[in-house]
Nucleic acid binder design. Structure first.
Length: 802
DNA sequence: AGCACGCCGACT
DNA sequence: GTCGGCGTGCTC
């Protein structure tokens, strides 16, 4: 009998392997690898969703009786052989469950909902039955679970054999269907009918002519009504007379379909031409080269991407392009769509599940040749990939922070290898890892040094905040910056003010006893929110009213410290009452689409000042903006994170490149308490090369990437002792099994030791070459699962260490 | 995860 | 003596 290997939807370490199932007679030769199936799993009648990862392998070591799979969920595989192989690699590489990887690669709708229904199978107390079930035959267990009393009764009934639990695995994937119409008669017949319809029945005549012209095709009713202007009643009449028939057709939910006009290729300069030529050769070669396209803002990277993508298409291949965040880069999407039209699919987090599923199906059915999207779009099942572009490759949104902890860049390289495709990494400030690889010849370096519009970069002024007068309380604004903003106001030009808030918050402190208001669940101080008049925990969402007295010593001498966007906004209002300010931070952009809305309003000059956190750095493409001010450039510099300098440099470089985009000259102010810091100085000079040199020295000394690789082991437990015990066990297990050069940092409690009532500990391993490490970590992962309250994770190449 | 088995304390 | 608490182990 035919058997299949199935990965079941039970994400635990113990079940993280294929299970063998028999294929029942009726399904023989229908089941293929990559299909979703429903299988019985565990005792009782439990059924779960699973993925067939292999077929026809009978050599199972399992001694027990094999079960049959219950049903197929797909007629054709949802995963092709490439995607199956990729999922396996991903699970191995990121220490994640295989099932989690499979789901990560697919649209959410392909994850089935499991329902548990309780059914009465034997009579019991009618009164109790009435109260539990009412008139219904079954009960959804998920709904009862909130009611402990009812659950208690059901457990007793289950034990007594009065009720049983039935399992239903429900596929959520649905195609949207609309009514369509189709002509039923031949051309000549309509001709005859036209002659018989009364002369004054204009609507009927128009309908007949319309149907005559349709031929075989099915047209959605809505579209037909729009095209003809006829009423629903007329179509109904046509149906009654047998002139047309209605049916249901599938309609794809496609977002933002309208294109704002075609995008025409721009003439390339010599550097761009050289880059395109090199990439084109890479696409055609039977290898998988990676290119690093380094070019300052405005040097025409996008045009190179578009030309390279066109080259892949011309070669009969497809192209995939990743952007950090679609909401922030609408221009990029517009240009790709403008250039390639309907052959483009868009994938990003702003899509509804239905839209995402439909875009995915367009790709799956090979209706598109180009995909643009955010991180997870790297899994778009494009066949015959010729090119993968990763724009702003240094952005850390390409690394997923929860399981599976993959980096899109690494997945891109894997897929390129599979297809012999080319990878293009683009950035003005490449990650140190990528630039180092380009320097050693691992990647091919392509450089764009000229700005297309020949505009010089705006002058950058560093303001030493230590020199500012202190009288009248501390201000967020230096005299120079405030004067510059005022000057812009007078000229009717716009300013952008950026508050670098990473690792920063405003907190309440008692001046008498020094008590700081902290979250009861997490070990961090609560942040003051003026708009909602309360204190919030930014980690777990806990809220409390603003205290009037110190909860510890009852003193009234309680005040808040630090700087938040709200506080800056208040100061702006006070100092520049005439200025119209748009504030942009996590609070004002929480709602979907709010982000784009605020940027649009600013673009239409509905405000003079855009004030926000780093999120505004990416939306800085406004011709009327001639001033950019960074209020506190260095708050990020002191973080206990070896990438702090790199992130600050990126942020400042990005900001500096963006003031004065059009004909007006721009100006940049960077306020800092560390004007001598190399990051600030080199950012001011816009000298990436020098920054790279300096930072590489530090990394080499401290044995950090790109000289060393890092892996982070994390343990979380509600009991601090239990967490500490496990992390020390792990540390001991590592001893004596690592390469001599490998370094173990920790174990340490995380910077914020307690979040959501969980205690966190971590170990960071730095290594150059340690062939046994991966195997060792995989084994640790298996050994560790004992306490059910314990969370354990391994993060390869973590982006943050706090 | 979700379920059953199994071994100890507080009730009939 | 049993009911039901939750620690432990297993799922093709």
């Amino acid at each position: 009998m035919q058997t299949v290997q199935v990965i079941v939807d039970v994400p635990t370490m113990q079940t993280n392997r294929p299970y063998t199932y028999l294929v029942p007679e009726r399904l023989t030769n229908q089941v293929e690898a990559g299909m979703r199936v429903i299988v019985p799993f565990g005792r009782g009648h439990r059924e779960v969703q699973g993925f067939v990862v292999a077929t026809g392998q009978t050599e199972s070591a399992y001694q027990g009786a094999l079960k049959e799979l219950t049903a197929l969920m797909d007629l054709t595989p949802v995963l092709n052989p490439e995607m199956l192989a990729l999922s396996k690699w991903l699970a191995d590489h990121t220490y994640a469950f295989w099932i989690s990887c499979l789901y990560t690669m697919l649209p959410n709708l392909l994850k089935a909902k499991t329902k548990r229904l309780v059914r009465v199978i034997d009579e019991f107390d009618p009164q109790l039955q009435q109260s539990l079930f009412g008139e219904a035959a079954t009960l959804d267990l998920a709904q009862v679970q909130t009611d402990p009393a009812a659950m208690h009764e059901l457990v007793k009934l289950k034990r007594a054999g009065k009720v049983q639990i039935e399992y239903a695995v429900e596929d959520q994937a649905r195609a949207k269907q609309v009514t369509a119409l189709q002509a039923t008669l031949d051309f000549e017949v309509y001709e005859e009918l036209l002659a018989t319809v009364p002369k004054n029945a204009k609507a009927q005549q128009r309908l007949l002519v319309y149907l005559q012209g349709l031929g075989e095709q099915k047209v959605p009713l809505k579209a037909a009504r729009q095209q003809t202007g006829l009423s629903l009643a007329t179509f109904r009449l046509g149906e009654q007379r047998g002139w047309l028939k209605k049916s249901l057709v599938e309609q794809l939910r496609t977002p933002m379909r309208q294109t704002k006009g075609a995008d025409r290729p721009v003439t390339l300069n010599a550097e761009q031409t050289a880059a395109v030529t090199a990439i084109q050769a890479g696409i055609q070669a039977p290898t998988a080269p990676t290119f690093l396209l380094k070019g300052v803002t405005g040097s025409g990277k996008t045009e190179v991407y578009l030309r390279a993508m066109a080259a892949a298409l011309a070669n009969g291949q497809t192209a995939l392009m990743l952007v950090p965040e679609i909401a922030l880069t609408p221009q990029m999407v517009q240009r790709v769509r403008g250039r390639f039209g309907q052959q483009v699919a868009i994938l990003h987090s702003g899509l509804s599940n239905g839209e995402r599923y439909d875009e995915w199906r367009r790709i799956q059915r090979q209706e598109v040749q180009v995909v643009v999207g955010t991180r997870s779009a790297i899994f778009a099942p494009l066949p015959k990939l010729g090119l993968i572009v990763i724009d702003e490759e240094h952005e850390n949104s390409y690394k997923q922070e929860d399981a599976p902890r993959y980096h899109a860049r690494e997945v891109a390289k894997w897929r390129a290898q599979y297809h012999h495709a080319a990878v293009v990494l683009g950035s003005a400030t490449p990650s140190l890892e990528s630039y180092a690889r380009a320097k050693t010849g691992n990647y091919h370096l392509l450089t764009l040094t000229h700005r297309v519009n020949q505009q010089p970069l705006p002058p950058v002024t560093v303001v030493d905040m230590r020199q500012e007068p202190r009288q009248g309380g501390e201000s967020n604004f230096s005299r120079a910056l405030l004067a510059a903003v005022q000057a812009r106001l007078a000229k009717g030009e716009q300013s952008i003010l950026l508050l670098n808030r990473r690792g920063f918050s405003s907190f309440m402190m008692c001046r008498d006893c020094g008590y700081v208001l902290k979250c009861p669940n997490c070990d961090i101080s609560l942040t003051l929110h003026l708009a909602t008049q309360n204190m919030k925990c930014h980690y777990c969402g806990f809220e409390a009213p603003i205290p009037q007295r110190c909860p510890h010593c009852a003193s009234r001498q309680i005040r808040y410290y630090g700087t938040g966007t709200e506080k800056v906004e208040a100061e702006l209002k006070h100092r520049l009452p005439a200025a119209r300010v748009i504030r942009m931070d996590v609070d004002t952009t929480r709602r979907k689409g709010q982000h784009a809305k605020l940027l649009q309003a600013f673009g239409q000059h509905q405000a003079d000042i855009l004030l926000g956190t780093q999120m505004i750095a990416k939306g800085l493409d406004f011709p009327n903006v001639t001033l950019v001010g960074v209020l506190n450039a260095d708050t990020g510099l002191d973080l206990p994170d070896f990438r702090a300098g790199e992130r600050t440099f990126d942020l400042l470089a990005q900001v500096s490149g963006r003031a004065g985009r059009a004909d007006k000259a721009g100006q940049v102010f960077i306020q800092t308490y560390n004007p001598d810091n190399y990051v600030i100085q080199l950012a001011q000079a816009g000298n990436y090369e020098a920054f790279f040199g300096a930072e590489m020295q530090l990394r080499k000394q401290a044995q950090y990437p790109p000289y060393f690789y890092t892996v982070r082991l994390m343990v979380a437990h509600p009991e601090e002792k239990a967490a500490a015990k496990v992390i020390h066990q792990l540390a001991r297990r590592l001893q004596g099994h690592l390469a001599p050069e490998t370094v173990v940092l920790g174990p340490t409690p995380r910077a914020i030791a307690r979040i959501k009532n969980q205690y966190y500990y971590q170990i960071v391993i730095k290594y150059r070459h340690d062939p046994a490490l991966h195997q060792l970590l995989t084994e640790l992962q298996h050994e560790i699962q004992r306490d059910r309250q314990l969370h354990f994770a391994i993060d390869p190449d973590p982006q943050y260490f706090m």
